[in-house]
Design a protein around this nucleic acid. Structure first.
Lengths: 185, 185
DNA sequence: TCTAAGTGCGTACAAACGTACGCACTTTGT
DNA sequence: ACAAAGTGCGTACGTTTGTACGCACTTAGA
């Protein structure tokens, strides 16, 4: 008896394709992301993509969703580990400044994700989920209005920094977060 | 005598093509921006694009540069008109909240521009120029370190807002700007 | 009015694209 | 050992793409 289920030969293949998709996006951009480039990068045959995914858009959607999940998990971990508000300020500073939590490669892909999300409802929804989850993580340590302001900074500062030549000043970022935490209620 | 110069029939055509390019980007995204779609939107024949522009990338570059120029001019105007720092805070609040200076359509195109800039040096340079000019505009009213923090907010808040369902609270934005202006030296 | 030079575009083409589909292969139940 | 069913992919097809190019048209000087 048992259902008609058979065992897949390579259960990790789907994930490998999604990883390769993010790599292609980071290197070439969404506008030059194709089935063939993803297949080459992942080291799988072209037909494997159309077998596992309904369309190219479906691949991009799932790849972006995986990225957003992975990033919001790191955000959540960094913030829930902080014992008090001051430590939370330091954690947020790390999130903004460091390459530890969010690499510059990920900022690049995020730019692409936001652009793509404006033309794809599923990815737009993923952006919204990510935004809400990051705000929830902040809400443990900051009042609701401060969360919004800090969230905007977390969004804007690394993005801005992408075009800057000089490295980001940690002290400045930290002072700004503290100022918002103390003044915005 | 006289140079071999003749008069062009339609000197505005180049600009019209660039306008149409931004319209196509806003509606379909860079990844679905093609010669033919631009030509249809602009109401010009396909050959006209390859005549006026070297390549599709060249069209995108010039379109994005035109947008950045137009936006940094509006930023500059709004800020230099402010008589003092408090008025400048209000002006920045307007820039962030209002659809008056930067429309949501432009935020959409900005997302696309940032994504594209990661894979195109000319557009990356345009982003950098825009960043520096907007910081110069702020420098009239705020100390240098405050400029960076405020700049990050100008960047991040509208971007964040793009995924939010509720409208942006003007009071909160204004209070945040004032807090930064007073506390960051 | 005629000529030469430069403008502007219709059309064509090779390359690259997304996707469908038939077929070999593997596994399970008998 | 055999049949049935599901897995996975090589290949091919029709479409769309960016771009080149020949040719009609317009204009300025003589």
């Amino acid at each position: 008896m048992g259902g008609p289920r058979r065992v897949a030969n390579d259960p990790l293949r789907k994930q490998r394709i999604l990883d390769a998709t993010l790599a292609v996006i980071a290197e070439h951009g969404v506008h030059r992301t194709t089935h063939r480039r993803i297949a080459d990068t992942a080291g799988v045959p072209l037909g494997s993509l159309t077998y596992h995914f309904e369309s190219l858009d479906a691949i991009l959607e799932q790849a972006f969703e995986a990225l957003a999940d992975s990033m919001s998990e790191r955000y959540s971990t960094a913030l829930t580990e902080a014992p008090d508000q001051l430590a939370a300020c330091a954690a947020v500073t790390d999130l903004i400044c460091g390459d530890d939590y969010v690499t510059s490669r990920e900022v690049t892909i995020l730019h692409e994700m936001y652009g793509y999300a404006n033309h794809n409802p599923a990815v737009a929804e993923a952006c919204r989920r990510w935004l809400l989850r990051s705000r929830d993580s902040l809400a443990v340590h900051f009042p609701p209005r401060a969360c919004r302001a800090i969230d905007a900074l977390i969004e804007g500062w690394p993005m801005h920094q992408a075009w800057e030549r000089e490295p980001l000043e940690r002290d400045l970022v930290h002072a700004t977060i503290v100022a918002i935490a103390e003044r915005i209620r």
